[in-house]
Structure formats: structure tokens, C-alpha cells
Nucleic acid binder design. Sequence first.
DNA 1: GGGAGAATTGCTG
DNA 2: TTCCACAGCAATTCTCCC
Length: 676
Amino acid sequence: MEESEKSSTENDPARPWQSYNTVYTIAKAGMEGVDKEKVQRIVYEMSKGSKYFENEEKKEVYMKQKIESMRAQLAKLTAVDISRYQKFADKRIVELEATRDLSRIWLHVDMDAFYAAVETLSDPSLKGKPMAVGSMSMISTANYEARKFGVRAAMPGFIARKLCPKLIFVPTDFKKYTYYSDLTRQVFQRYDPNFLAASLDEAYLDITNFCNEKGMTGAEVAEELRESVHKETGLTCSAGVAPNRLLAKVCSDINKPNGQFVLPNERMAVMTFISSLPIRKIGGIGKVTENILKGIFGITTCEEMLQKSNFICALFSRTSADFFLSVGLGLGRTDTPQVTQRKSMSNERTFSPTDDEALFLQKLVDLSENLASDLKKEGLCGRTLTLKLKTSCFEVRTRAVTLPDNICSSEDILKHATKLLKAELPASLRLMGLRMSHFNESKKGVASDPKQRTLSNFIVTEDASGRVSESNIYDDNTLSIDRETSFSSDAHAPCESFDFMDTHQMLDVDPTDKRHGRDEAETGVDNHDVVRDAANPPYPIGAGEVVVRDSSPGLLEETSLDLLGRVVSCTDEEPASLLNPKEPFFWLNDYQCSVCGIELPPSFVEERQEHFDFHLAERLQDEESNNLNRVLKPKQRFTHKDQVSESRQRKKQKASPSDGKHIPIDMFFAKTSQNF
DNA sequence: GGGAGAATTGCTG
DNA sequence: TTCCACAGCAATTCTCCC
């Protein structure tokens, strides 16, 4: 269809589904002959009116606003600006061209409909029938028979069934897929001992040495490798051979399934190949980036990246622009990256939308335990804990806290996660997740800086000598040295980072894979236990409870509250030094702070506790430093912190898409710079 | 005001 | 009835300190 004709029908109000591209894409192999209009209509009708659909519409609106905004920026460029950017772009293109390396031969192997093929091997009766691996909620893979109906990965099962009523669902079985994946990797290893596994069903091989040693061409090696895979696993795969990884991946998709495509290591061949290649075929360019490039510049092919290079340089960041120009030149990575260390670990669970806070807490307990368990398996501890929430309207929120020291115990994770969650309640949620990052780092310098405080760090602890000292609620300074020395620095030394496609191989860590597996013995000791001891919270935390302190006048009890701040139990005794401040501290009329006068209603349990701790810490600090004459102006300081907290709250509310948040331009291109 | 670090969001596979 | 899980990374914004 001609472009003009296509765009006119896409705006047809009688066919609203034509602009709804949430799931369907022609980019997927095996879907070339699908009736796109029919599939789009069914997907649209099945989705219309749902919360998911509404959220997708919101996202669509933001994207259009962004395109308009960038178009406006573009329109403001003067002739002088354009000329200046053209010079800059030309220079950059020359510099990038100079990095071109045609000396390597890369092969990308992609197993055909891997999960579905494995399931068919296990149950041959599935052969020839439309089948999908997954559930009514989500499909992981569909076989080629199902793809003829428009069924594809990342599509909800209930829509897939509507598209193909005879569709057979098979639940995922990762043990099975891992087994077959290992078999394929045994083959890959023979061709490149340092191959890069991108996922269970994809790998990059540098076959340069193999070709030279055997006197074979890339095409011959690809042919032989595919035959070996089929012979040893019963599964078929497709291959792409090219001078770099980016192009090899594109090539492997061309003759799918069970085929291969070879791009010669010649500049002219590469430029010809890339000239008409749709940008969406490039790894790293997804729906959003495609729409932006098309919407602003009319770019649909890689070649056009170069034609619009001046505008690209004018509107995008250096990294994004470099990526786009590299795509236009057909450049990609040719090196074999070093093994890198995992940067984060997370787990998340989707559930039926609910506002049941008891359920949230239980989910948080489960997530904390799972995360702690996973961390322990790899001997990791982290400093930054991120809580991810998805509301029943599909709005995703993340809330993070960075601690001065590493944590990894489920108790610590739960403690901090609960704090993060409480600040978001009440809420109706459908997903909760926890992510740990900043592994095995320490931030002593900053954290121990008494001048650098946060609202929540005025907590008083007592060390082994009985000396009371101020420490951060997130800090466990007394054992920090032990903790630091308990790790093998080698085991966690940062390694050279590499591109996105390469990092993916690291995600599928195979303990038997010497390139990716981590020997737990590397870490030497059971760090988990060390840290758990070290990180004993100043106040004991009971499972499923958030422990806070009630600051009733003259009687400071430790009280366990649920997420709403309701009292559920009273537990441990308070250290004497904390229980006996020299001056009474209480809430006037159960509302107003007797020290600084700030008003905090009884329902602000956590805030009142922090406020109390703040005053107490100040007092003890004064006593310790024998500087009783120092005027702390607590009200000012607290007010400032309070304002900070409030401002953050306001920011959070503002950040809600429903409040019209403005998405930064380059967030659309966050990923794009990683693939070349 | 500038720099560093943290928090947050979004894209991508 | 029903739209995943996970990880990496870029960019922006905010906060705090000097």
C-alpha cells in the first residue's frame, strides 16, 4: 500500500483499530501473510474499554504530544542552525565511519519458535496444530501455525483465543527449555568457545577464527551449525552472518524459519543492505522510537537516518544521535565483550487488582523472601532497593531508597520495602515488585557525614559499649568494616560494560556456563549471614509488621503497626537511654509537638515517630558534644525536611500520568544508544 | 550556581 | 474474566552541599 494511502486509511474514524498497535506488528517472523486489518480490529475490540486500553491511549497521547513538541523545536531551527548541525553531523559520520571494522564474521543464531518447538518435541501430537506457550493472561511464544492467525508472543491469551479459537495452550516449562538450550550451546561452543548467549534461544558467535582455520565461508559454517543443531536437538534454527552483531541479528530474521542469510563483509554490500531496511528491524528500535522518528522526520528506513542527520543531531542527545547515525551506516559491535557483573536483581508479581493492604503486605513478605533468596544464591548484597507498583489502571510507579550500606536479608528488605509502600497507600494495585541494585558497594564517606541527613536518618542506636550515638536508620556503621572485608573484591569487581544485546546474554545465567555462571565459592564466606547480623535494625521487626514507636508523653513504647498504622502489638523494651529523655516530649492535644510546635495528627504515626527521633537525636547529640548551648532551631530544620518530604509527595502526585506528566524527550530513546 | 548522587520514568528485548 | 517477568540503560529532575 502506498504511504499516502496508508496514512489516510489509518485516520479513518470508522476504523479506529487501525491506529491501535499495542500488540500487532508485522515485524514478527511468520506473520507476513496475516490479515492485519482483521487482527487489529479483533485486538482493538477485545481491548476497548479496559483499563489496559485506557492506559495505552494515555501513552499514545503522550507520544503524540512529544512528537508535536519536537516538531515545534524543529520548526524553530534557523537556516544557520541547520547548517551548523549539518556540519556537526557530517563530522560525526566521518568519525563513526572510521570505526568500521569489516574484519570479523559474526553469526547470530535464533531458534525457531523455541518454546513451542520444544513442547512439540515433547508432545508430537501438537505438530501441525496452532499452539501457544503461555496462559490466558500472556503468551510467551506461538508456533507458526498459530502465527498465521495473528497470534504472537506478548499477546494476552484471551485475545489469541479470539483470533484462533482452536488455539492450544501449553503452560511454560523452563526446565525443559533450559535443557534444550544447553544442548544448543554445546553445538555453539564448537564454533566459538566464547559465544555470547543472548537468551535461552539466541546466541552470537564470532566465527572468524573457525572460518580461517577450517577454510570455510560464513555461509558454510552457518549451514553446518544449523544442521548440527537440528541433528543434536531435533530443533530448527535460523542464522544470520554479517560483519557485526547488529547486522547479524537482522540477517537471522530474514529467512526465518529454518533458514539463513549472509551479508558479505564489504562496505558496499552493507550500505546497500541497510539502505532500504525498515528501522524497526534494528534491535533497540521499538514501537515508540519508530513512531517518533517517523512522526518527526518521516524516517522509515535506516538510510534516511543519514539523510536527516542534521535534524537528528539537533534534536537528540549525543548518545542517541550517535546510535541513529551508526544505524544509518550499518555499524555495530564487533568485539567480544568481557564478562560483566550483574547490576540488579528483581522479582515482581502480578495479581488481581485489589486495595487490600494486608494482601500487599503478604506480597511484600513473599517478594522480600524471594529476593533475599536469589541474592543469597549469587552472594550479592545491595544498597538500593526499589519498590515497583502497578496500579489497577496500569500506571507504573517506582520508589527507591539508597542505603549507606548493603543489605540482603529478607528482614532488611522487608523493612525498607514496607516504608516505601506505606508512603503510597492507599492504592489499588495489580503488581508489586522489588529490585535490588548497587551491589556490594559501601557509601561510608557520604553516609557517615553527619551534615548530610535525611528526614528519616535521625535514629539513635546504642553500640556495644553502651554509648549512644546517632546513626542513620539505614546505616549499620558498627559492623561496616567486617562487612566490607567479608567480600572478595575480585568476585564483585566491576567489569567493562557492553551493549544491550550483550547484556541480555548475562541475564540467562547458567551455572554450568563458564562464561556466565558464578561460582558461589568465589565469594568466600556466606555474606548473607554476616550482613544479616550486621544489619539488625535498631528496632526489631516482626514478620508482617512495621515497627514504629509511639511517642506518648512519658511512656515510650515500642509498638507494632500494620500498614495503616493500626496498633497490633507491643513488643521489645527500649534501651534506657532512649526511654528517658531529660525533658518530657509529647503531643499537645495529641496533635502539636511540645518542642517545636509542628502539627502532626495521630494518624501520621510514622512521621510522628521520625519527628520524635529527630528531637531525641538532637538532644543526645548535644549531650554527647557537651555543647548544650548550641541552638539547633529544630523547628526550622524539621520544617525544611518536612517541606522536602511534602515537595516529594507533590512531585509524586505530579508525576502521575493522569496528572499530565510531561515525558522527557530522550526517555523515548533511552535504549537506543546501546546496540552499536 | 555547579556538581554529585539519588530518585524516577520509560524503552527495549 | 483476563494484558508477564526481568534486567540494563539513558535521560531528566530533584536534593543537598559547597
